[in-house]
Amino acid sequence: MSTDATMRSSRLSGNGGTIVSFSDRLLKSLEYLGFKARCHNAAAACDTVARLLAEQQKYVLYKELFPKEWKGSKASFYRAGSYKRYSERVNELFELVNEKCFPFLEYWHDDPETDFERFAIPPLNFDLCCEEIDFDNLRVSYVAGLLFYFRDEEVWDFFSQKYDLSAQDFPKLSRSPHPNVWLEKQQARTKPYRDLIRLVDHSTGNPWLDLTHCEYQELFEWNKETIEMLTTAHQDAGKAFANLEKLDERIDENPRRVLSELISFWNIGRLLSS
C-alpha cells in the first residue's frame, strides 16, 4: 500500500464499529510516545489522569445530551479542535451546547487557548452600576423599575416626556422596598410588580438575569444537571423579558395608575386600592 493510500485508509476498531482513521491512530501514537517520555514522573501522571478523566466526562456528557449527534459524529477523539486544548469531539460538544441549549461561546471564550474546564455565561440583564443605559431602548416597565434604583431626575424626565408625569404626581419613594415585595406568594395583581422589581434588582434566582459583568464571574461545571439547569434558566430569562410586554401595555393604557400601584407596592407592600 502506498503512503497516500495508507494515510487515507481507515479500519474498524474493536469498540463497536467506531472508524479510526490512520491520522487518528498516528496522533494517538504521538500522544502516547509523549506520555511515555515522561511517564515516570508522578506529578505528570496525575495531570494526565486528571486530563483524561475530564475528557471522558465530556464524552459521556455528549453521549447523554446528544445521543443522535454522538452516533453520527465523525469528529476525532485525538486531533485538537478550535479550542486547542480539546479534541475535535469535545469541541463538537461545546458547539452543540452553544447551538441547542444556550449561547455562551462568544462570551469571554474567544481565545482558542481557553481552558474550558469550567465556563462563564453572558449576563442577559443590565448592569446598573456601570453600563450606559439608554432608556429609549428599554421596555417602559423596566424603566419604571429603575425609578427605585437610580433615584435621579433622568428617569422621571423619561416619564415626563413620554406621559407628562413627574415625581410630584406620586408619593415619595421609600429608601428600601417593603418586605412583602420579596414574598414568593403574591396576588395576581401584585405578581407582575414583584417580578419586575426582582428583575431590576437582579434577585430572580436565575443566573442569566442575576449575574452582571461587574461582579466576579461565576463559573459552571460540565455536567448534565448544570447544562439542563442553565438551558431551562435561559428559556425562563427570555420569558421574564417577554412578560414585561403585558406590563408595558398596561402602562401605555394608564401610566398614572400603574406607576401609582408599583410605587404603592414598593412603599407599603400592597396596592392602595386593595
Binding site: N15, T18, A42, A45, V49, L52, Y78
Partner: peptide, 15 residues
C-alpha cells in the same frame, strides 16, 4: 497514578 495513566493511555478514547 503512573500505573493508571499508563492504562488510560493504552485505551481508545471512544471506549
Amino acid at each position: 497514578a503512573i500505573i493508571l495513566a499508563d492504562e488510560l493511555m493504552r485505551r481508545a478514547a471512544a471506549e
